[in-house]
Computed example of a mutant assay.
Amino acid sequence: MRTAITGHRGLSDGVSSLVARALDMQLACLSDYLVGVTCLADEADQLFAEAVLRHGGQLEAVVPAQEYRGGLPEHAHAAYDQLINQAVAVHRCGYRASDSDAHMAASESTVDKSARLIAVWDGMAARSYGSTADVVAYADGLSVRRLLPRRAD
């Protein structure tokens, strides 16, 4: 099953540990064929990617922009490099600057490529464009459109 992730960055160590355990529990319940689709951002994305690999799945990375890696915190670079090298596919969005537009385009791409979305989200409204709340709203809108019956014209 192709599963995407969206989630907050800058999590505390305690919250990161809880998220890692929750991701392991969620992924253990999925089918034998697991593909994780992620932008490999620090925190939730990287925790998800590591969990996918622990559960024998494959990774697909979506890179928002040419300058994306440089915009990640320094402490996330080594994990990003390791995980992107383990990806079976890398999809590039074509943006140069790693900004909100690039991040939202990449997030939409992860959702579009997946059958399921895991959101590590506090439930609060978006603080800036391209945030977790925006990705959840995008996915929710797709789900509603996919479930509505087609009108007979």
Rank of each mutant, 00 (worst) to 15 (best):
D134A: 04
I118V: 14
L72K: 03
F48P: 01
G57E: 02
I118N: 00
D13E: 15
R9Y: 09
S31M: 08
T3F: 08
A20T: 04
G71Q: 02
G70Q: 14
Y68G: 00
V37A: 07
D32H: 09
D122Y: 11
I118R: 00
L47D: 01
D134C: 09
Q86I: 01
A87Y: 09
S16D: 05
R116D: 10
V52R: 00
A133H: 06
V52Q: 04
V120T: 05
A125S: 14
R69W: 12
D81C: 10
A139P: 08
R151L: 15
H91Q: 13
L18W: 09
C29Q: 14
R116K: 14
L40H: 02
L23W: 11
V19A: 02
D153I: 12
D112M: 08
A102H: 06
Q58F: 15
L11Q: 04
L142V: 11
Q46E: 03
S100W: 07
I5W: 05
D99F: 05
D32Q: 11
A22N: 13
V90P: 07
V90F: 13
R92Y: 15
S17W: 05
A126F: 09
Q66K: 13
Q86G: 01
S114K: 09
N85Y: 13
D112I: 04
I84D: 01
V63Y: 07
A61G: 07
Y68P: 00
A44T: 05
A79C: 10
T6W: 06
S12L: 07
R151Q: 11
G94A: 04
A87N: 03
G10V: 02
S128N: 08
A22S: 15
S109H: 06
V136G: 05
D99C: 08
A126M: 04
S100K: 01
V52A: 06
C39V: 02
S109W: 11
R151I: 12
G10N: 12
S98T: 03
A44F: 04
Q58M: 10
R69M: 14
S16W: 06
H55P: 01
M25V: 13
R127M: 04
E43K: 08
A41L: 01
G94R: 02
L23N: 06
A125F: 07
A105W: 09
S98Y: 15
V90Q: 14
A133D: 12
R9D: 04
A78C: 06
V52P: 00
G14I: 07
Y138G: 00
M1F: 09
S128P: 03
D101C: 04
L59Q: 03
P73A: 10
S107H: 07
G14W: 11
R127S: 07
G141A: 08
